[in-house]
């Protein structure tokens, strides 16, 4: 299958050529195939956000290559707006970016910017709002500033979904939400991905959050990819995660300690249910 996004040895330095320069990316390779969920995990300052901003051309590569669906982002002739329509990026705390008075107007901003006909815009707004669990009948005419934080975040997400992107890029989408809000948003995202068959790139510093839904994961630290694999492969290597200041899910932690104590248990376990099965097997 042909990859949707290809990143080859990408380098990026902030404030390059000044006394304040900081290196954010030192040679990152990454591919995203259609329809898959790619997790991007790394501690604060590992270069996640910088990498994400390259995927839709908000930043141009200083060295290395970024190719989105055949369009080379290093080429100054590439139409970045076309790229941004293919790759929808949702920033951290996106609820801050709402500006229209009414919910539906804000969701419609993107499609209108691309000059779509009014009928099409209306249909897209409807679909996007349904996808994020805000039925248009109840929410379209609500003032954006009267919504709760979680609802506002879902409005922002709808604003990106209304562009109908091939890839949805998310930067810490669940940060700052309460447990119910986290569960809701996570399941909405999974549903959208499965229904529309689109890809998601999901960045987070929490392994737990990403592992549940990711098909493949990249572990990022100090501007480099230090590990790539399925969540199971990466969780099997708890030492590596801990070494880079990342958390290990509680169940993995428990099984790891049991294995250390000499019990014959697997440690590449992702969910509570799996852990129960493993423990039952041992206890029998």
């Amino acid at each position: 299958m042909k990859p949707l996004i290809e990143v080859h040895s990408l380098h990026y330095t902030y404030l390059r050529g000044t006394p304040l320069e900081t290196v954010a990316l030192r040679g990152v390779d990454l591919v995203v195939y259609p329809g898959e969920v790619v997790g991007l995990v790394g501690p604060t300052g590992s270069g996640k956000s910088t990498l994400l901003q390259h995927l839709n051309g908000l930043l141009r590569p200083q060295a290395g290559r970024v190719v989105v669906d055949g369009m080379d982002l290093g080429d100054s002739r590439t139409d970045l707006r076309a790229v941004r329509r293919k790759v929808g990026l949702l920033f951290q705390s996106p609820e801050d970016q709402l500006f229209e008075r009414y919910v539906a107007d804000d969701v419609a901003y993107g499609p209108l910017q691309y000059g779509l006909p009014p009928e099409e815009v209306r249909a897209r707004v409807r679909r996007a709002m349904l996808a994020v669990g805000l039925p248009p009948e109840a929410y379209a005419d609500r003032p954006t500033f009267a919504l709760s934080g979680g609802e506002r975040r879902r409005v922002a997400l709808a604003g990106v979904l209304a562009l109908d992107p091939q890839v949805l890029v998310l930067d810490e989408p669940l940060a700052g939400l309460d447990p119910a809000g986290r569960r809701l948003l996570a399941s909405l995202l999974e549903e959208w991905c499965a229904q529309e068959g689109r890809a998601i790139v999901w960045a987070s510093h929490s392994m737990d959050e990403v592992a549940r839904s990711a098909d493949r994961m990249y572990l990022l630290a100090e501007g480099r990819v230090i590990r790539e694999g399925t969540p199971r492969e990466i969780f099997g290597d708890a030492e590596l995660l801990l070494e880079h200041g990342l958390d290990v899910p509680a169940v993995t932690w428990v099984l790891r300690e049991l294995a250390r104590a000499g019990l014959p248990v697997r440690t590449d376990v992702l969910t509570l249910e799996e852990a129960c099965d493993v423990l039952e097997g041992v206890l029998r």
Partner: peptide, 12 residues
């Protein structure tokens, strides 16, 4: 950040 966020939604 806002400029980037709105540009990601098609602002020019």
């Amino acid at each position: 950040r806002l400029m980037k966020a709105q540009a990601a939604r098609g602002a020019d």
